[in-house]
Amino acid sequence: MNGVAARTRARELDRQRRWSVVRHVVARAAVYAVAAGAALVCAAPFLWGLVTAFVHDRGGPGASGGPIRTGRAPTAEHVRFLFRSTPFPAFVVNTLIVGSLVAVVTLALALPAAYALARLNRSWGTPARMAILLVYLVPPSLLFLSFSRIVATLGLADSFWALVLVYPTVTVPVSVWLLTGFLKAVPVDIEEQAMVDGHSRLGAFARVVAPLVFPGVVAVVVLAFTLSAGEFAYALTFVWSNARMPVSTGMPARLGNGDPLLWQSMQGGAVFVAVPLAMAANLFLDRFVAGVTPHR
């Protein structure tokens, strides 16, 4: 090779090498910047809520000065107020009861349905899976008016049993979709082995398959909880007594009058509800992604 040409090329490559180091550093920095920025923006209202839940009340709306009066130690007064003097604990209990019951109903309906769609090869399997998922797209806001009539007819008006009855229409379709993904990931061999060993199809399902999709089951429980805690339209329409409301409608309803003391307490309440739900979801995020991924 020509010596001069080789040296020129070597210099050019050196330049490229330095340039790619710079690009790498910039890319890493961008990842960290976006991650930090996203975390901050996503948490912003809750962070602010958390701060204000522990600062002293400034003495009524309209007072001048910054949003927080500095120089005073944090106070637990608002949090105490929240748990002692507001219906917040009742809201939380209602939400927990509704969430648990909905999770149970969802599993009872969705697990067998998902199994039928994943395993028992019927020609209508795929269309049925699609149809069930599409039900998820029917919004509560389209149905709540007629539901309020149905609920009244059934004598469930102003009772959280109405929510237990109706919420699975939201949770079952997604859960069927998710569990079908999980079940398809369980090798058929394992189940056939159980059947060769003398179990019926049903026995094989209960004894071998169900334990293997346990992570999927837990993911569905988390999802059912999150969806039913977050639902708004039905809860607003069916339940109007304070003592029976879940968190999602109870808190906004109590805040209708703009008492800042109550507001500050409620910010603490929002964080109190938000963080456990996010923790549960975070634990199962990878499983969730795995369940959503199409199996090719």
């Binding site: 999150t226 999602s248 808190m251 906004p252 910010q267 309440g269 929002a270």
Partner: peptide, 11 residues
């Protein structure tokens, strides 16, 4: 995503 939307809106 996981927080009830009404609570997020309050915040």
């Amino acid at each position: 995503w996981t927080t009830p939307v009404a609570l997020s809106a309050i915040s």
